[in-house]
Design a protein around this nucleic acid. Structure first.
Lengths: 305, 305
DNA sequence: AGAGGTTACGGGCAGCGTAAGGATC
DNA sequence: GATCCTTACGCTGCCCGTAACCTCT
């Protein structure tokens, strides 16, 4: 029989973590028989069954449990080598990034550019979605790094906090000021982020508390659509000032102060600790740098920053 | 390019330890271009040169120095897996054992049998030689485990002390007793172990001290030849009682007491710590067990044990 | 010339994908 | 039938060995 092999161990870990040969095959981008074959070879070189096969899936044997620890150490070691001795130019593979739309509109291009500079041979896959979906994708190992609202408090997730985005209220240029002053705009339709997002929920709760159930909210899954909706006078919106400024400067929107402002949006870059990817970690740090540079160049608080 | 590979790392370490591609190829039992190729692949996946090539050989680069640590940890880890999770029946490969002739005549067969029982798939290669050559073979990585006289005091060598072999003096059955008593035998020719062995040197020194330069010593590289030489009356000999007893019992030799006896032969099982072979370690412990059983069954000291 | 390492090239085998084969719910 | 894993089988591509080459001492 052949000797111990890193690819076999990686495959073994994938089976353990995903709880099945089929799922391992999917995320490893090989066919399912290939995974069966690798597993069989590993079991042959070790001379022991690693899983109890059942029709519902596989379950680790005692020997398998033992091997997990060692396989993880092999994985850590391989990650360390990649980090410490590999030339970044030689780092290959795919990094699957998921970002919220706000990020996509603000500094995603800079992030991609920096990543490409750091790892020229790395393929970067981008996915724009709302945070709750990104979180699910991360936990399901469909993406490697997520930039989303709020840290993910899960023992297996690493988070890097990013500078917040201050929000501001925007209205159409020609919107007539209500009798009760700017705060009256909030009775009218309020455009905001999509349902199932944290800003949506917070805004809805705050408006409900202030004005009761009668307030009409227009959620939109597209951030730029939000701006357009405000521009054409459908309603007002609390959106990142970093994005709204250009509309104000070009005379398409007006900022106003109703006396209350939702809390800034706090993003974090999050990645799973378990498959030990130093690339994801480095990418998260690059994201932090890019975000901080963005915040410094475009201070989003006109008054209080 | 392909990914990191344990075989490449093993090859890398062999080149580092043996100081050259050619020598690595020899001990890895592959051709020299194969080693070149593995090295090149490793360098490609890391995107860095690991050695500075010169006509006189190779020398580690800075990156290479870095990698050595990691490669060693991979090696340790692989050894741990072999030790802790592999079924012993699945352990393959070759264990090259070197033993002194005394061991070969006493309990080598038992050792081989025990080893084969513990690792049925392991090929055991035996080499009988004098201790100084065994030591050289061990240091030169030509053998994996040596059972030889005295521990090897080198930082890279692990030693397991084995029970000693008491010696006894033997003479031919019909040898006339000298006028001065049994001690007079020692003036006559004394047969002993080969030149360049410790027993030879010690015996020669002791006899020289007692009887001056006139003593004639017959070194023999074959232990059984020693017994035969004594048997035919060429001289006397101080040899392991464990081996001599059968000659005495069959009436072919007599034991006598000249009032002085060389110190017991103290053997140790020694193996290199560096290529981290748990098989060699286990084999050394098996050797200790076998040796102790041998000593217990055949107590070599008739009087003082 | 001999010791070191690299390059060129053909063949064998490991490992992959496709397709078919159980087994259990 | 649906889901999961295994077996069978042909093919591709990697890696090895042979042989020729380069470069210093």
């Amino acid at each position: 029989m052949s000797r111990l092999n890193l690819e076999q161990l990686r495959t073994f870990l994938a089976i353990v973590r995903l709880g099945g040969v089929r799922r391992a095959a999917d995320t490893l981008n090989v066919t399912q028989p290939a995974v069966t074959s690798r597993l069989k070879n590993l079991e042959d070189t070790l001379g022991a069954e690693l899983f109890e096969r059942s029709t519902t899936g596989v379950r680790l044997t005692k020997r398998g449990e033992l091997l997990v620890r060692y396989a993880e150490r092999f994985e850590e070691l391989a990650a360390l080598v990649e980090k410490d001795v590999m030339d970044p130019e030689a780092v290959e593979g795919t990094l699957r990034i998921g970002v919220s739309e706000t990020i996509a509109q603000c500094w995603l291009p800079e992030l991609i550019a920096e990543l490409h500079k750091a790892y020229p041979a790395l393929v970067v896959e981008v996915n724009v979605d709302i945070s709750v979906n990104l979180r699910a994708g991360l936990m399901g190992r469909e993406i490697d790094l997520a930039v989303l609202l709020g840290p993910i408090s899960d023992y297996s997730v690493n988070n890097v906090e990013l500078p917040g985005f201050d929000l501001a209220w925007y209205r159409a240029v020609n919107a007539p000021e209500p009798e009760e002053g700017p705060a009256g705009y909030l009775r009218g339709p309020v455009v905001t982020y999509a349902r199932n997002t944290r800003p949506y929920r917070e805004l809805k709760a705050a408006l409900f508390e202030r004005y009761g159930a009668g307030v009409s909210i227009f959620p939109s899954s597209s951030l730029s659509a939000c701006f357009r909706l405000v521009e054409v006078g459908l309603g007002v919106a609390a959106l990142p000032r970093a994005l709204g400024r250009q509309f104000v400067e070009s005379g398409r929107l007006c900022e106003f102060d109703p006396g209350w402002l939702p809390a800034p949006l706090r993003f974090s870059a999050s990645w799973l600790g378990e498959p030990q990817s130093h690339v994801a970690e480095t990418a998260a740090k690059i994201a932090r740098d890019v975000a901080e540079r963005f915040a410094a160049e475009r201070p989003s608080g006109d008054k209080n920053s």
